[in-house]
């Protein structure tokens, strides 16, 4: 295989993995705090459309990123208000949020169908990215690095800092955390908001970099893969990183293999893979009784109202 081919392959993998990593990292933090937000796809779509709209209106893809974060944040706050404020069912609200996101993004995006923008583009000057190795390492846009950096920060923050410990405590035992005096709902709102911001960024990665345009349902179900990935990673950021890149690699490899003339697996099987892997991991977790308590946050999906 030629170097150019390898470089292209590696770069496609990194770029295909980035939005999934961003969205699932945000969801991981929310779930660690005990909130199951199934609205990732909806928040991503809102992020994608607000990001694109802002970029189209201002001419700056970076302002688009800011708008996308804001869009994702606001959407997640709707979810927080309903599930944390009013103790609505998290599963139903999350699903509703996705349906809302699909519709609202199409509505906001209607005037922007057919418009084009300047994509984010590589962060570093082309001169630095002349050599193939340098290009694989430095040839990306801001978000690829941001996703990697944030994963490390979140992993460290959850494990080694006091606020991280509080967040995990809230997710493991809301009543105990409340009894000690931690603001359970405030912590959860913060976690959901963080998830919204990252989902917004993940969505914007589609409309500002991967496919710089707006078209309805632009993210085409990546939000669900992000959700599956959190379980696949058994709520650990390092495994999340591995899972996201593995998924990106499998998908990209399949396309390259087919283009080169050999089909390894039917495409339908590949589309199933992330979900199959998730079921497998869930099964493995639950057949080892000792590990159940350490995997899923104990209060995941449960409503909490301070008495």
């Amino acid at each position: 295989m030629s170097t150019a081919l390898l470089v292209s392959f590696a770069m496609t993998v990194a770029m295909a993995s980035t939005p999934i990593l961003l969205a699932s990292l945000g969801e991981l933090v929310a779930e660690k705090a005990g909130v199951l937000n199934l609205g990732v796809e909806g928040m991503m779509l809102i992020g994608a459309v607000t990001g694109f709209a802002a970029a189209a209106l201002t001419g700056s893809a970076y302002l688009g990123l800011l708008a996308a974060m804001l869009g994702g944040l606001l959407t997640s706050l709707i979810f927080a208000a309903l599930t944390l404020g009013l103790s609505a069912n998290q599963v139903a609200t999350g699903l509703a949020l996705t349906i809302f996101g699909v519709g609202a993004s199409a509505l906001i995006g209607a005037p922007f169908v057919g418009r084009t923008i300047e994509r984010l583009g590589p962060l570093l000057p082309q001169a630095l990215a002349g050599h193939p190795v340098l290009r694989v390492l430095f040839g990306y846009d801001l978000l690829v690095y941001l996703a990697l950096g944030l994963t490390a920060v979140v992993a460290w923050w959850l494990r080694y800092t006091r606020p991280g410990l509080v967040l995990r405590a809230v997710g493991e035992s809301d009543t105990s955390a409340h009894a000690i005096g931690y603001p359970v709902l405030a912590v959860r709102t913060g976690a959901v908001a963080f998830g919204g911001v990252l989902a917004g960024l993940a969505g914007a990665y589609f409309s500002l970099e991967l496919t710089p345009m707006w078209a309805d349902r632009l993210t085409a179900g990546r939000g669900w893969i992000a959700l599956a990935l959190v379980v696949f990673a058994s709520w650990r950021p390092a495994r999340l990183l591995a899972g996201a890149y593995l998924f990106g690699a499998v998908m990209t490899f399949e396309l390259h293999a087919k283009a080169a003339g050999f089909a390894l697996l039917p495409p339908e099987i590949l589309a199933m893979l992330p979900y199959l892997a998730t079921i497998l991991v869930l099964t493995l977790i639950s057949v080892r009784p000792g590990r159940v308590s350490t995997a899923a946050p104990a209060c995941l999906g449960k409503a909490f109202s301070p008495a």
Partner: peptide, 22 residues
């Protein structure tokens, strides 16, 4: 290159890249 979808912009773009690489 069969992508098994009528509509998935990101996947269609990746398929395009794979074909150009070939």
């Amino acid at each position: 290159l069969w992508v098994s979808t009528w509509y998935d912009p990101a996947k269609e773009a990746d398929a395009a890249k794979a074909l150009m690489d070939q």
